[in-house]
C-alpha cells in the first residue's frame, strides 16, 4: 500500500534581509493511512513550516509533498487544520463554528445542523451548541475547533501544537480524548508539538527534528501496548523509556538551537 502522505526532499527557504533562511531542509518522510504521526522538535526548527506546507498555505522551494500520490499545490478540504489559537469565529456559536467548515464544502443547510450536532457530541460538547467562544473555556474552544475540522470529513487532520495553550489537566484529558477520536474515526493525524510527553503519549511514531534547518533526525516507533487500557500510560516504565530516548535525541538540538538564537541576537 502506498503511503497516505509522502514528503520527498522537501526544502523551504525564506528570503530574510537580502539573504536566505532555510527553515526545513530535505525532509523525507512517509505517513501511512490512518497513522498518528507526531513531529517533535526544538523551537524554531520549522515544525510549523512543515504543517503550512502540508496544508498548502505555502509551497516548497524544492521537493514535493504527495497526498494519495498527488502533489499538494494548494489548500484543500481534504486536510483539516487545528490551530494552536483555536481560530474560532467569535461571532458564531459553537454550532455555527462547526457549520462554518460544512458551508465551505457545500453541505445542504439541513444536514449541516445535524452534522454539527453530531460532531459536537463526538468531542463531548452536547449542550454547549449555543455558546459563543467567549463563553467557553480554552479546552472547550479547542474541542469546537477539532469538531469543526472533523465535521467536513478531511482525510488528514493536521494539528499545530493544539494543546500548548491549555493548562495541564485540560491538556491531559484532551490528549486522551484525541486518541479516542482518532481510534473511532480512523483519520490520518499529523501532530506537531514541542512537548516530549505529549509526543510519546499520542504518536504511533515520533519524528524528531533537528534545529535550524529542520531535518528529520530520527523516527522513533512507539509501542505502549493497548491504548484503550484503563491504566495510566504516562506512569508505565515503557513510557519513561521512550520519553528518555526522545529527550536524548532532542537534548543536543535544544542546546544547539539556543546557541543559534544567541548568535542571532548578538549579531
Amino acid at each position: 500500500m502506498s503511503p497516505h502522505i509522502s514528503f520527498r526532499g522537501v526544502t523551504k527557504r525564506f528570503p530574510v534581509k537580502g539573504t536566505e533562511f532555510t527553515a526545513v531542509d530535505g525532509i523525507d518522510l512517509d505517513v501511512a493511512r490512518g497513522e498518528f504521526l507526531v513531529l517533535v522538535g526544538p523551537s524554531g526548527c520549522g515544525k510549523s513550516t512543515l504543517l503550512d506546507l502540508l496544508g498548502g498555505l505555502t509551497s516548497a522551494s524544492e521537493g514535493e509533498i504527495l497526498l494519495d500520490d498527488v502533489p499538494i499545490t494548494g489548500p484543500g478540504l481534504d486536510r483539516g487544520i487545528v490551530f494552536q489559537q483555536y481560530a474560532l469565529l467569535p461571532w458564531r456559536t459553537a454550532q455555527g463554528n462547526v457549520e462554518f467548515g460544512l458551508e465551505a464544502t457545500g453541505v445542504p443547510r439541513r444536514q449541516r445542523a445535524e452534522r454539527a450536532r453530531e460532531f459536537l457530541n463526538l468531542v463531548g460538547l452536547t449542550g454547549f451548541e449555543d455558546r459563543h467562544p467567549h463563553q467557553l473555556s480554552g479546552g472547550m474552544r479547542q474541542r469546537v475547533a477539532i469538531a469543526r475540522s472533523l465535521a467536513y470529513d478531511p482525510a488528514v487532520l493536521l494539528m499545530d501544537e493544539p494543546f500548548a495553550a491549555l493548562d495541564a489537566q485540560t491538556r491531559e484529558s484532551l490528549q486522551d480524548e484525541l486518541v479516542r477520536i482518532w481510534q473511532r474515526t480512523g483519520k490520518t493525524i499529523v501532530f506537531i508539538t514541542h512537548a516530549i510527553d505529549e509526543a510519546v503519549l499520542l504518536g504511533q511514531r515520533v519524528a524528531v527534528l533537528t534545529s535550524r534547518p529542520g531535518r528529520v533526525k530520527e523516527v522513533v516507533p512507539i509501542d505502549l501496548g493497548d491504548r484503550r487500557g484503563t491504566g495510566d500510560p504516562r506512569s508505565s516504565p515503557e513510557f519513561a523509556r521512550y520519553r528518555h530516548r526522545i529527550w536524548d535525541l532532542l537534548h543536543d538540538e535544544v542546546t544547539r538551537a539556543q546557541q543559534l538564537e544567541k548568535e542571532v541576537v548578538g549579531r
Binding site: 496544508g55 498548502g56 498555505l57 494548494g74 489548500p75 484543500g76 478540504l77 486536510r79 487544520i81 490551530f83 489559537q85 483555536y86 481560530a87 469565529l89 461571532w91 462554518f100 467548515g101 458551508e103 465551505a104
Partner: peptide, 27 residues
C-alpha cells in the same frame, strides 16, 4: 481582522466574496 481567522479561511480554500462575507465583514 485576526490573521489566524484569515489563515483558517485560507486553509479551507475560502476565497473572494465568501471570505469577505463570512469572515471579514462580521469581524
Amino acid at each position: 481582522v485576526d490573521p489566524t481567522l484569515l489563515r483558517l479561511a485560507k486553509s479551507m480554500n475560502l476565497g473572494g466574496f465568501r471570505l469577505f462575507q463570512k469572515v471579514i465583514l462580521p469581524a
